[in-house]
């Protein structure tokens, strides 16, 4: 569970980004964070795992306050996936990179080997273990980065535009991965994203704007507020856009998420 109470934050020599922001996220929930550029989505994500500290207010992760004394504990619970796959790959081989977090936690070598093998098989990257990161594609690197986080067995995953630099197919694969983490591992997921499909797959959409939680609703509701969605640079998927347009014309149709639902709505059998 993540709990932010009356957070204030500003970067050095900048005006306040957040003045009084509160946010609760239940355990096991899959939340999309959206908002215009520069709204502070990344900043919010970094506050949660203590990469930045608030000027005022409190942040708790699973009951632990995110303060200097507890930040190590908190980071054990939170896996953080960054946007650029290149900038989070530390070691010179995939194997060493997955080991990096384990080494920092002083896990004995034998256990490390077991855990790396396990996660590598699970994420289907076992064949790449000895490769140098420069020889992997963006999507492959991001998959390795996920392995490097999962091997630490976190309860919470924060993805900060983790798919925005990837091609369409890798994006799909990443979304499947999110679904898997949500359904099978019951992880709490916080994903900063502009990807409409991913947002629709999540359970809750939070809009950050002008230093505030500007909206907190279901993803479908967000897309129905067209102005807000537009401001957040969100484009509804084709099926949803079509159903909404038809509704506006007076057609009695509920908003749908994909082509199959659309067909069923138009032509119930």
């Amino acid at each position: 569970m993540i709990r932010m109470e009356q957070i204030a934050f500003h970067y050095p020599k900048r005006e306040a980004l957040f003045e009084n922001l509160s946010l609760h996220i239940e355990k096991g929930q899959w939340v999309s964070i959206v908002g215009p550029n520069g709204a502070g989505k990344s900043t919010l994500a970094k506050l949660i795992n203590g990469l930045l500290s608030p000027a005022a207010g409190q942040i708790q992760v699973d009951g632990l306050p995110v303060t200097r004394e507890h930040v190590d504990e908190v980071r054990k619970k939170v896996g953080y996936l960054f946007q650029n796959p290149d900038n989070q790959f530390i070691a010179t081989t995939v194997r060493d990179d997955i080991a990096f977090g384990l080494e920092n936690r002083a896990i004995p070598r034998e256990e490390m080997l077991d855990r790396i093998q396990e996660v590598a098989v699970e994420l289907q990257i076992a064949d790449w273990l000895d490769r140098h990161p420069a020889s992997l594609s963006g999507g492959q690197k991001q998959r390795v980065a996920i392995a490097g986080l999962l091997v630490l067995q976190p309860d919470i995953m924060i993805w900060d535009e983790a798919t925005s630099m990837l091609d369409e197919r890798s994006k799909q694969a990443m979304m499947e991965q999110l679904k898997e983490l949500h359904q099978n591992r019951n992880m709490t997921i916080l994903s900063v994203t502009h990807d409409a499909e991913e947002i629709l797959a999540s359970e809750r959409a939070i809009v950050i704007k002008n230093g505030q939680v500007a909206a907190d609703m279901t993803p479908l509701e967000l897309f129905e507020q067209e102005e807000l969605a537009y401001e957040c640079k969100l484009m509804p998927p084709f099926a949803l856009a079509l159903s909404m347009a038809m509704k506006k014309k007076g057609c009695r149709i509920a908003p749908v998420q994909d082509e199959r639902e659309l067909v069923n709505a138009i032509w119930p059998s």
Binding site: K46, N49, L51, R75, Y80, M112, L152
Partner: peptide
């Protein structure tokens, strides 16, 4: 940031693969 997020603390005791 990525290193810190994965628990790296300069000169803290760590093991090695």
């Amino acid at each position: 940031m990525a290193m810190e997020a994965r628990g790296y603390v300069l000169d803290a005791p760590r093991t090695s693969l």
